[in-house]
Simulated assay, not measured.
Amino acid sequence: MYVRQATKPIPPCVAGELDERRHLPDGAIVDTDYTWYEIEGVRTLTRDATAYLPDGSVVHAKTTDQAADGSGRIRVVPLAIDELVALVTDPELRISAPVPPGTSSPPEVCLRFSKTGAVIDQALARRWNAVLAQIPLDGVPLDRPLGALLQGERGRGVCQAVHVSTPGLQSRLAIVISTEQPLPQESDTSSYGGARRRLPDGTLVETREVRSAAPASTPRTDRTVTVTHPSGTQVAISFADAPAELLPLAQFEEIALNPGLEVS
């Protein structure tokens, strides 16, 4: 589901591209479709509705008979077409709807690509969230606490990005966790701004710290730590425009090597 500002005219109603176009009394136009697609002999049923609303909002909702974690079919499409229409025309979902006082800003989308690896189910993501929420980050002014991982495309890989507000500049801290990642077999090496070492259990730890290109009154760095376990679990943490006094690489490593973030 998404809600956005319309940037193009309402598309024409073309037979074969949608099942029905509804013109509602308030001027809203809603397109609906009930269809299916098939990949390698597996058929997926889908229903969707797109509303073009008088205030310039475009609201789209889609539902399928595929389980949310990608594990298989749930044998029924959860919402009927009329329920989807009611959802996309809800006045509270329009861009002009007032934001309730105290509402925090939406989380940043931080995994824009299709991460390879196994599908990460909600139970595992919740377990990782609980671990991240308990990590002490005293003195680091985050705009929201860690422990709210978002799934990437098709559920492969999870991530969270937060902002760190310090005088003169806002920094960005992100963590990405994925599974079934290949473990590099090259010998330990180091390069400009980066280093690689292997732990006794075979875990590979890669670190990098370079001068940030962002203008600032005091030096800032871009820091990354990537930990890849023999199990295939990979934890990558990045801190862009990082103040020198906050979260050194050693602390990054401690977070990324937390045993609660690994899938054995």
Rank of each mutant, 00 (worst) to 15 (best):
D31S: 06
D31V: 03
D31R: 00
T32P: 05
D33W: 07
D33F: 02
D33K: 04
T35P: 01
Y37E: 15
Y37G: 12
Y37L: 10
Y37R: 15
Y37V: 13
G41N: 03
G41Y: 05
R43V: 04
T44F: 04
D48Y: 08
A49H: 03
A49K: 03
A49C: 07
Y52H: 14
Y52F: 15
Y52W: 15
Y52C: 03
D55E: 13
D55H: 08
G56R: 10
G56A: 10
S57I: 14
S57Y: 11
V58H: 04
V59A: 10
V59R: 02
H60I: 07
H60W: 10
A61E: 10
K62F: 02
K62E: 13
Q66G: 02
G70S: 04
G72L: 14
I74S: 00
I74L: 01
R75T: 02
V76D: 14
V76I: 14
V77K: 09
V77Q: 08
A80I: 01
A80Y: 03
D82C: 05
D82T: 13
E83M: 05
V85D: 04
A86L: 09
L87Y: 11
L87I: 15
L87W: 13
T89Y: 09
D90A: 12
L93I: 04
R94D: 05
I95G: 01
A97G: 04
P98S: 07
P98A: 11
P98N: 09
P100L: 08
G102T: 11
P106G: 07
P107S: 13
V109Y: 14
V109T: 05
L111H: 00
R112N: 04
R112W: 01
F113S: 07
S114T: 10
A118K: 06
V119W: 06
D121H: 12
D121C: 01
Q122G: 07
Q122S: 14
A123N: 04
R127D: 11
W128K: 06
V131P: 00
L132C: 01
A133M: 10
Q134A: 15
I135L: 11
I135D: 03
I135R: 08
I135C: 02
P136H: 13
P136S: 07
P136L: 08
L137K: 14
L137G: 12
V140N: 04
V140E: 05
P141C: 08
L142M: 04
L142R: 09
R154E: 12
G155A: 10
V158C: 01
V158L: 02
V158Q: 03
